[in-house]
Design a protein around this nucleic acid. Structure first.
Lengths: 245, 245
DNA sequence: AATAACTGTGTCCACCGGACACTATTTTGC
DNA sequence: GCAAAATAGTGTCCGGTGGACACAGTTATT
């Protein structure tokens, strides 16, 4: 498919994501639109996982042949980029959140968490160097803006947003399954296989076995998101108070 | 390929990763081995990205036909699982690291960072619910063991390791490209496209534009790993001192 | 020696992304 | 009004993918 993804020309993605969407004057009226195609693809990915998204499938769902899609989209890679930015959607408005940067960033984290819950395939799609779309940049904007007023410089704000977003992504990856099953099911399955493996080979992993046993006893499971987020925000708070004194 | 990954029976992966590897008594001697196959696949992925790893390609590199591989591996998904655990490799020995949990966890973070640098395709391969392999569990073990002596309970230790690992993964994803180019190239490319996009649409993203300009001015780039790791460890330290008093 | 188990090969299949030629449709300039 | 130009959707073809299956060759057991 792609022999060297680093040398892909990003022009196709850029024009699809950022370029103007103007109808040519001559020729028959298009029966489809990039938006309809993207939404159909997202629907498939949401319901049946990213592997089910093929050109044939999308076109079939829309009632067209697969080659007709190539009138709207230069290729599948570009379509996926558009799927990503469309699925991420509009960034949240954090102006209504009071109480300064910490509450704003926390709210932002929960919003992006919901996005990942709604579109689990996003987690596997946003790896590697990519061209950012308008919505994706909008999310970064709102998060960086939440750190206005703190004494952090630009690089630190970017890094801080990176850490928070990364944590949510990471937790979502652990929690969510790619296909249609609920996260309870998936977590339960992995947890049970993990405990089964540890029951057999536990002697090789004493600390891990003890930790999991303790976690199960205290029923302190699924705190990963809040735990890590609190740690990260605590660490940021330390830096911010440090800067402001 | 896979219509619903959540319902995959993990038995194939489990037996391949954890099961005994015993030669049957009768029949010709196998000319290959799962290890050789996995290593050949890893070599391809390291050099040309994960998309270049196909059964035909692996078999061709080994001088066999692709169908011969299926005598050793039930399918490609299982082979990838084995690739992952093999590429992660032996966990680091942190007993030699002095100075308590913080230095140990920091050392652990840099070790896993190096693994992700060596095998960038890992970042795209370890998404979703998966069965852990022996080595992967070994890394978790060594990280959890590093938190021995802190007052944290089992669940907190697991969550802490999750956060640190997630951060490294996140930074590596931003830094590394899937194929052969160096990370400098990739970062440079994305950075330049980002600035070009912001130069055109910067009015929609004022805070982001300002932050990036400030970061460029202070030349405080590529501090993401250390920045976030310091914040996370600071936050953990707060919790630990809280627990011990 | 016969048999059973196993290894590697060749053939076949459905599906994938995509190139290309073709017809049908619509707008423009005359 | 009419021809030319540009576009939209279709049908056909191609190389590559993962994998099922039958088959011949090899080895240890009986």
């Amino acid at each position: 498919m792609d022999k060297n993804e680093a040398f892909e020309d990003q022009t196709g993605v850029i024009t699809l994501l950022w370029g103007p969407r103007e109808r040519p004057s001559r020729g028959p009226k298009p029966a489809l639109s990039v938006e309809r195609i993207a939404h159909a693809a997202i629907e498939i990915a949401d319901a049946e996982g990213p592997a089910a998204v093929s050109m044939q499938r999308i076109a079939g769902d829309l009632g067209f042949t697969k080659m007709s899609l190539y009138r709207y989209v230069p290729g599948k890679a570009e379509l996926i980029a558009l799927m990503i930015d469309t699925a991420i959607g509009e960034p949240p408005d954090l102006d209504g959140v009071p109480d300064g940067w910490r509450a704003k960033l926390q709210s932002w984290a929960w919003h992006i968490w919901e996005v990942y819950q709604r579109h689990p395939w996003l987690l596997g799609a946003i790896v590697g160097n990519r061209v950012f779309g308008p919505n994706e940049l909008g999310w970064m904007e709102s998060a960086v803006a939440a750190l206005d007023g703190t004494g952090l410089d630009g690089g630190e704000r970017l890094d801080a947003v990176l850490v928070v977003n990364g944590h949510i992504r990471n937790i979502a990856q652990q929690t969510v399954t790619t296909a249609g099953t609920t996260m309870q099911h998936a977590e339960q399955a992995t947890a049970s296989t993990l405990t089964r493996l540890l029951r057999q080979h536990g002697d090789r992993y004493p600390a891990l076995t003890a930790a999991i046993a303790s976690a199960a006893a205290n029923s302190s499971q699924d705190q990963g998101l809040e735990f890590g987020l609190r740690r990260i925000l605590d660490g940021l708070a330390m830096l911010i108070t440090d800067r402001s004194t």
